[in-house]
């Protein structure tokens, strides 16, 4: 990855879910500027990735709000503070610099130099689900268009290849439809003869099958075979438990995303069962200057609720201020009465 020039700012926030977004607001009231890093391609975290349409009933003052609406409202609330987002990026490295600041790097080559890092990463990073097939990892990263891939970056890589796709959601069907014209052969397997994908995609897939351009089996992949990391074939098992051999160059499983803690575990921060223990005055980890708010932290009495994360963001911001502006006095003010806060919010 090409390394862009390092960005110096006040606070780096890992995770652009509801808590990371509200942290922008609380930090913004104290004149602290934020950059946010998130592995997803849009803000909202679990709220928009897992349940965008599901109503949430326990946000104070919002009797009913969906995950997507809550995210939209938070984005509107933080807009005056002009947060900078780095989407589709995973925070991969954290190191302390000689001047006491932190260097946070991402897998896309972004480098943030900051006095304060706030980890608002929920349960971790959304990553593709890996089927529990023994030895599957051996066939990952085998090269363009061959072996196991959880995403298609360049369709051209799969031209002329024998492709096996597993799954029954939109991704599985979309890639079946898109790759069929350029594959040497394409086979789709799913555990049932039904799909949770958009109906027009299902129709298109059925047409391809009827035209003999793809094969579809109600089956699942039981084993992968190949020498030295080079995938050659798989064992498929049908609904009646009968098994057969299927030759393929590439295997593309599409079962959606799951959450793994990921590189945060390697940051050198003290963890307890994949959670970051914090104090309840500052929500600072055991590493000074590294804060943890929202579902990723733990303390006596912790409740994994969005409203708890909002409270944590407010207290964290007060402590962060003293690190970023050590020589300044923090003036505690209310947005209802402070004309300077209202100016920052653009309402006066």
């Amino acid at each position: 990855m090409t390394a862009a020039a390092p960005i110096e700012t006040d606070v780096a926030i890992i995770g652009a879910g509801p808590i990371g977004l509200f942290a922008v607001f609380e930090l913004g009231l104290l004149d602290l500027k934020c950059h946010l890093v998130d592995i997803l391609d849009r803000p909202g975290g679990q709220c928009t990735e897992l349940y965008p349409e599901k109503p949430i009933y326990d946000i104070p003052g919002l009797p009913i709000v969906t995950g997507q609406e809550l995210t939209n409202r938070l984005l509107e609330q933080v807009k005056p503070f002009n947060p900078q987002f780095h989407f589709n990026e995973m925070a991969t490295g954290l190191e302390k610099l000689a001047d006491g600041r932190w260097k946070l790097s991402t897998d896309a080559g972004t480098t943030l130099i900051v006095p304060v890092v706030v980890i608002a990463g929920g349960a971790g990073s959304f990553v593709p689900k890996r089927p529990p097939i023994p030895g599957i990892e051996v066939f990952e990263n085998a090269g363009d268009g061959v072996g196991v891939h959880y995403a298609v970056r360049k369709m051209e890589n799969f031209r002329g290849k024998n492709i096996l796709i597993a799954g029954g959601g939109d991704s599985a069907l979309d890639w079946t439809i898109n790759l069929a014209p350029l594959a040497k052969s394409l086979t789709l397997v799913h555990h049932r003869d039904g799909f949770r994908a958009a109906q027009h995609s299902v129709n298109q897939m059925r047409e391809l099958e009827a035209a003999g351009k793809i094969k579809f089996h109600v089956a699942s992949v039981k084993a992968l075979h190949g020498e030295a990391g080079k995938l050659a074939s798989v064992t498929l098992a049908g609904a009646d438990k009968s098994e057969w051999h299927h030759e393929t160059d590439a295997f593309l499983p599409f079962f959606g995303l799951t959450i793994k803690l990921g590189p945060i575990a390697e940051f050198g921060i003290h963890l307890n069962e994949n959670l970051i223990p914090v104090d309840t005055a500052k929500f600072e980890s055991q590493t000074l200057g590294i804060f943890a708010i929202g579902d990723i932290n733990t303390y006596p009495g912790k409740l994994k609720l969005i409203l708890s994360g909002f409270h944590e963001a407010a207290l964290m911001s007060q402590a962060a201020f003293h690190i970023v502006r050590p020589n300044e006095k923090l003036r505690f003010q209310y947005t209802t009465s402070s004309s300077s806060l209202q100016k920052k919010l653009g309402v006066s």
Partner: peptide, 13 residues
């Protein structure tokens, strides 16, 4: 639930 099981791994009857 039937739809969501499409996103589960190693689904059995």
């Amino acid at each position: 639930e039937i739809d969501m099981l499409d996103m589960a791994l190693a689904v059995e009857p």
